[in-house]
Amino acid sequence: MHAVIPYVTAALLFGLGVYGVLRRRNAILVLMAVELMLNAVNLILVTADVTVRAALDRVQIEAWAYPNGEPYSGGVFALFVIVLAAAEVGVGLAIVLQFYRLRQAVAVDEVALHADEAVR
């Protein structure tokens, strides 16, 4: 297979995610864009599993190098990222909902960063 296809897909997804983070006002939409970015990274990790292993094709692997068999580091990391993403979304949405409870709005550019702004 041509590894460049998933790589480029992942790059474009990442760019779309950045665009979304910078463009969207609603906090929940920003979180959705962050999810896109994380997925792009995951895709790269999984594709790297394939290409790296293929790049090491004619390399003589030492016996002690892989005590547990062929590693799937990319995939394992992708799993970890998925778990982290889930935790992050949970906590993030808790914050968003709390903010909504206080301010009745979820626009990110209305978040007051200073005490003097918070009075208004």
């Binding site: 983070v21 910078l22 006002r25 990110v108 550019d109 978040v111």
Partner: peptide
């Protein structure tokens, strides 16, 4: 430093 979130995000990226 007092930039709001979106502007800060733009700066970081």
């Amino acid at each position: 430093h007092r930039a709001a979130l979106p502007r800060a995000a733009v700066a970081v990226f």
